[in-house]
Design a binder for these strands. Structure first.
Lengths: 196, 196
DNA sequence: ATAATGACAAATATTGGGTTTTGTCATTCA
DNA sequence: TGAATGACAAAACCCAATATTTGTCATTAT
């Protein structure tokens, strides 16, 4: 550790502590102890335990986005990009639920409490879908009066596959087929000319 | 009360007790007391408290279906019936969450525990969607290789609007617009000729 | 003979007071 | 002078003793 305690150091250690003890058992004193400082020092950088936890979870969620952004920015059919973007989102959620259960549990708790950090994460995700849909419309691939609304609908229609409240469903071996079937609806809904 | 205690009487009283005390506080002794019998008598008709609770919840859920069955059986455009069927399902879920909170909480708990009674309810609902979709295909209104799979997809795509885990979202004034947007995707996905 | 009872053990839940944790801040440290 | 400390009060949280509840069954009642 360096001379002065930084927010960055606290966040890294807090993430380790949260991963080790889980959201129910991790305390601010644990974090301070792991850093070799008094817990008062943590409060110089974060106003509350909740703020610290939100920031850790926010960074954890942010680490999902670069891979998704890359897919959204590819030069390929919008339909293809959207499908792979959704699959990447779903796959990373499923992987994290399995491989990083304590931070996933933290995320689930924050989602349940409707914390701002989770809402912000959703806004970023819907923003990325909006970008793909907008591009798809520009290419003449999709037809929709409002890409932002269509993007939200795509996010809502796939809720079961990425919302942490449904993580228990994700072990079902049929879940992939269920997603395929929903994807078939979505694709046609975005592409279709019917009703216009 | 009549001479002999019947399962029917127990179920009616158990529902009242559950509604009054909620799933966390209601006990078998409460039900027996309300019936003026010993709790041992309840166990003559139900093997466990869980079985009694499942049966009460199952009947409560069954009372949803007649109105939906009626919509499914109407002689009207399948698309129109499906939309009204979904709206009726969603509306009754929302209404019950608001007006019958203790039984809704019971239902939520059983859904969380993935009890058989809830799975059976879902199967009935998906079966009704399947009937509408099958009829829509027969009328040449819909195009789908497998109505049962499409029906499940419709159910999954509207998860956010009827799954009790998301009841907290239902107070959002924008929820109706979100459903409209998902409906637009679904309708086109069922009707569309693209990709075939 | 069937239904109901109530005493009972095991499992589960409640309670309350001792302990830990959170969050503050006057003081110390570099 | 800004960073860190540690003593402190209030809030939250354990945990073990206590009480309730579940589920069984031999007995009683009809």
């Amino acid at each position: 550790m360096s001379e002065v305690l930084t927010a960055e150091q606290i966040l890294e250690t807090a993430e380790e502590v949260l991963r080790r003890y889980g959201p129910a058992k991790a305390t601010v004193v644990d974090v301070a102890r792991a850093l070799g400082v008094s817990h008062g020092s943590v409060y110089r950088h974060f106003p509350s335990k909740a703020a610290l936890r939100d920031t850790v979870a926010g960074r954890w969620l942010e680490r999902l986005t670069p891979a998704l952004t890359a897919i959204a920015a590819e030069d390929a059919l919008a339909a293809d990009r959207l499908r792979r973007w959704l699959e990447a989102l779903i796959h990373s959620k499923h992987t994290r639920a399995k491989d990083d259960p304590e931070l996933f549990a933290t995320y689930l708790a924050l989602a349940y409490e409707a914390r701002e950090v989770v809402k912000a994460h959703v806004e970023i995700l819907v923003g990325q879908i909006t970008a793909i849909v907008t591009d798809g419309v520009a290419r003449g691939e999709f037809t929709t009066p409002d890409p932002a609304i269509a993007a939200r609908a795509v996010f809502d229609a796939t809720f079961r596959f990425h919302n942490p409240a449904h993580a228990a469903d994700w072990t079902d071996p049929e879940i992939g087929k269920a997603f395929d079937a929903v994807w078939a609806l979505i694709l046609c809904g975005l592409s279709g000319t019917i009703g216009r």
